[in-house]
Design a protein around this nucleic acid. Structure first.
Ligand SMILES: [Mn+2]
Ligand SMILES: [Mn+2]
Ligand SMILES: [Mn+2]
Ligand SMILES: [Mn+2]
Lengths: 223, 223
DNA sequence: TCTATTATTTAGTCTAACCTAAATTATTGT
DNA sequence: ACAATAATTTAGGTTAGACTAAATAATAGA
């Protein structure tokens, strides 16, 4: 229905999705920070999105926004593009996982459904991107996320890395150097209850990881 | 030098390049037609491009525009993107030659130099796109075009198709059905001097082609 | 409960790129 | 050479999406 959504609107919806994923409406300020835009600009756009036909968000002054059905579909469409693109850049064109975000962020608004379908096929219809983020299916449903943050594991537990929730290229390269990437088996050997550091064994080496790292790595705990 | 050129400016420069390729400044009206924009809008943009620092075009009221050095480089940059993309879509993603133009026209403004370099490498640094159009080199020089229009051949001459200068998907599919695609050997067996039809032998079959077709196919004549 | 701080919204501007209508300039056929 | 026609430019407007500064609302701490 209706005219195509602008780039800018697509980015707003994508970020609203991400901010509201764990319920809670998204605040003006958080959106402004993510979108690199002044808070006043966000207010203006949110009013517009709420007034669109059909409305893309539910917005109440001073109380944040959430997506409507239509807004959610549009957001998942962009996110599917983004994550498929990242996967394609890595698997087919040899990018590393720290190089793909910006490229995907520009391309996501511009590829056709044809292009989307062709790269999905070329990749064998993956469900996760190079960072382990889930890729919405072609019919725009987001698979359920079963992962636990690494920070919640304790000595003796072992797990498989599912997902790394970071965009900072330096951090991504660092994690790659340590071998902390999706699919990898790890084991927790120590925990410091004062600074919350975890000692993690990967590839036969141990590393002490701080909270800043362990809250960004999500795993499936072995049983 | 300077800020990145907008999509719109990139498209203007690309079309000015194409219109001025056979010398002659490009007219406001021709540009308007190609860009699907009102003539008045073109005038406005041309004034802006001429006033840019550095100037991208040379523009004199009522006399059309040509590209400056800087404008030429920018145009070739976009054209290289466009043609590499078309080639990639066909060779790597299985598009047919009638499906690629629009997709490339959107992507051309958005891919990074990194992306350009990677697809160029993946393709083995081609010099022609799927229609046989020459691809500017990475250092932004356009190879010389050595081709002759098929319409200038006469019975007895044989040639290899180098290039097909058409965007209309229906025409492209038709030519593909006949086997009139770059790289193919053809032989002219008859000419009608009244309607300028040529009878052309391709793949052991003969076809009578009108001027509308034969001026869009460019060949290298066998010696 | 009141005040200080922070978050959010309003008001007023700006820029890019387009538009239409009217005015002007060029060109062409006689 | 000149009127009719065609091409081009000017003038004035619109829209999307941003910005800054000022006003207002919410919240938290004493
Ligand atoms: Mn984006
Ligand atoms: Mn899609
Ligand atoms: Mn384009
Ligand atoms: Mn380039």
């Amino acid at each position: 229905m209706t005219e195509p959504l602008t780039q800018s609107i697509q980015d707003y919806l994508k970020h609203i999705y991400e901010l509201t994923e764990r319920s809670q409406p998204a605040s003006t300020t958080d959106l402004a920070a993510r979108l690199n835009v002044a808070p006043a600009s966000v207010t203006g756009m949110l009013q517009k999105l709420a007034a669109a036909k059909p409305p893309l968000v539910i917005y109440k002054k001073h109380q944040g926004v959430t997506l409507t059905k239509a807004g959610l579909r549009a957001a998942l469409e962009v996110i599917r593009h983004h994550r498929l693109l990242e996967t394609y850049l890595v698997n087919a064109l040899g990018y590393t996982w720290d190089e793909v975000h910006e490229e995907a962020c520009r391309l996501e608004h511009v590829i056709s459904e044809e292009f989307e379908a062709r790269i999905a096929t070329a990749l064998g219809h993956p469900n996760r991107d190079p960072h382990g983020e889930l890729i919405p299916s072609a019919d725009l449903t987001m698979p359920a996320d079963q992962s636990t943050p690494l920070s919640s594991l304790r000595p003796g537990q072992s797990a498989t890395i599912l997902r790394v929730d970071a965009q900072d290229p330096n951090l991504l390269r660092h994690l790659d150097d340590l071998g902390l990437t999706p699919g990898i088996e790890i084991e927790v050997s120590a925990y410091s209850e004062f600074d919350h550091n975890l000692t993690v064994r990967v590839r036969r080496k141990s590393h002490v990881l701080g909270l800043n790292t362990t809250t960004k790595i999500f795993v499936e705990v072995d049983k």
